[in-house]
Amino acid sequence: MLEVSALESRYGRIPALKGIDLAVRAGELVALVGANGAGKTTLLRALSGVQRVSGGRVRYEGADITNAPPERRVRLGIVQVPEGRQVFGPLSVEDNLRLGGYTRRAAESASTLERVYAMFPVLRQRRQAPAGTLSGGQQQMLAISRALMARPRLLLLDEPSMGLAPRLVEEIFACVQGLRAADTAIFLVDQNARAALAIADRGYVLETGRIVLAGSGAELLADASVQAAYLGL
């Protein structure tokens, strides 16, 4: 579904991605782990099109989208949930969701909205509230729901559990697994490497802009270097 080859990106002169090769197949849950500053966010931003790339290729369903603008990728089904939620604070919860469906037809958005409310009833309860007044966990649910409104076929998740209480982290991970079960491919970045790899079909390890290790979720969980660096064993 998604094939990335030799992808490079830089901030000014400083390279952040130094030749990334990876793939995500349809319906797969792929985790990306790496230390702070490894380039995980940069990679996701490059995939969603909000980050310039300086080399390499991104192909999606056979088409080259390396330089496609973000709105086209959303229409194609690649949707990113950004790090730090980034809800439209002054707008209502429901407006945030409707904007999530900006690229979809009104009728389709209305039915997705019902599904999203069924998944997160608290969002329905607070649908008139300004998004900025929600708690951190609710904002994360809103950020994910807003992305779901675009009907993603490949969902890019950047640190969905950041700053959340353990109970909420579980809820978010259960939701991610539910989405995969419903056939949405997921590319997941999370500082909770253990939990991410545990639910992943496959994983990649990113170190200073390079993929240094790849394998199934179970293989990476059992890998001594991964255990030492990311699992605190």
Binding site: Q80, L91, L99, Y102
Partner: peptide
């Protein structure tokens, strides 16, 4: 209107606007 709200949303958070598929251009 959704198009009007999309313009407001862009002023509140340009990154998020791009990520929901609003063409900032």
């Amino acid at each position: 209107t959704l198009h009007g709200k999309a313009m407001l949303a862009t002023s509140h958070n340009r990154l998020a606007a791009q990520l929901v598929g609003i063409s900032v251009r």
